[in-house]
Design a protein around this nucleic acid. Structure first.
Lengths: 210, 210
DNA sequence: CGTGTTGTTGGACGTTTGCGCAATATCGTC
DNA sequence: GACGATATTGCGCAAACGTCCAACAACACG
């Protein structure tokens, strides 16, 4: 198995374990057992467990980011692109991925590699939303005095709401998260209520269940 | 030392350690060493480490809650009470307390006692803000079609922004968090821009540095 | 065929974890 | 002053942790 392939295999195995036990309590031996190999092998490819976890978290966050970015790029309209952003953010299948975010934010203070990765990816997500807002403003579809601030606010709102869903389970319903965040976005962008709502974005509605 | 005093002492010691190392990596022996006693003593008062951490987290979150509640109750005006809520939320001294929240949200999936405590306190914070909004609406100082939703949105926004400050350090500045959240609150409550801003809430401005 | 490079193994090392338990110390009550 | 309950100790236990390393296997290249 090629070095690159092996690294991917380690990352995949790490994610399989992290999905079950959480990022924070994923150990070298867990990953080795998941791959069916020895634990020493992991340290042959990664300098420390910190870097393994950071690499694993990065692939998930980056994949989701690219997935959202391509979904947005196929939207026929700047406003629909923003609507797609919100709908792809709170998908039910992503609950475990958001738990990874929670773990990363918490572990950031203890694991340097996780911190830099988490920070970089968070900035990338903000940049994606900010750019979409700027496009909407430039094409006259929206008005927004400070796209950078609006993107941070909307992203943080999504994070804070999703956090309640994932960490506390029944406190909030997922549908409300999307609806509330979308409504805030309409206010931020000077749009009429409902301008970003369900109609016309059927391609992503499948992720909005329950 | 009375049993109740001893429990408090354990909780205090746990917090002293958690402040340094984070909740997730606070161990029985750390707490015992902090108290200058044996580790067995902790298990004599708490059934498991999970409950120790939950109790410690609870006292901090509850103290902060009561602190905010009393500060709000002394405000001369419903709107000022809301402004106080935002200013007391993002105080610099509370960075370590917010790291406790991050740890609690992350650990919620693994530690049952932490989960129920975190959930209960989060609901209490939302209730505090919702009540303040309802008072402002009832006295005609604000308009808000759905105080429950608005409270969740504003609280989640604060959480999401504070998260960036605490977990990633330099990504956002603390002053911006308060200003951005306050601006969102003004929009949610149908207020003029600046209605909740600095002027007139000097009693809490000390916590807004940097 | 020999030889060096590299992937991989399996386990040792030292530490740390949560928890339990027998022994000891302390103290209120008769 | 003796006694019973309870607070507290100090350590043992088994398991788990990250890291490291000597040894074996596989293969490319001379």
């Amino acid at each position: 198995m090629s070095p690159e392939r092996r690294r991917e295999a380690i990352v995949d195995a790490t994610l399989a374990v992290a999905r079950r036990k959480g990022l924070a309590s994923t150990t070298v031996r867990d990953v080795a057992a998941e791959m069916g190999t020895s634990s020493g092998l992991i340290h042959h490819y990664f300098p420390s467990m910190d870097h393994v976890l950071a690499a694993a978290f990065e692939t998930v966050a980056r994949d989701d980011l690219e997935q959202s970015a391509t979904a947005m790029s196929t939207a026929r309209d700047p406003l629909r692109a923003i609507a797609v952003f919100f709908r792809t953010y709170a998908r039910a299948e992503k609950d475990w991925a958001f738990q990874l975010w929670l773990d990363a934010w918490s572990e950031a203070s203890r694991r340097p590699a996780v911190r830099t990765t988490s920070r970089r990816l968070n900035l990338a997500w903000q940049a994606l939303l900010q750019q979409a807002i700027e496009v909407a403003v430039a094409t006259g579809r929206a008005t927004c005095p400070d796209p950078r601030a609006a993107a941070w606010r909307l992203l943080s709102l999504l994070d804070g709401l999703a956090l309640q869903v994932v960490a506390h389970g029944t406190t909030l319903r997922r549908g409300q998260v999307v609806r509330w965040a979308t409504a805030s976005a309409e206010a931020e962008l000077g749009l009429a209520p409902g301008a970003l709502s369900t109609r016309g974005v059927a391609e992503t509605a499948a992720g909005d269940r329950a």
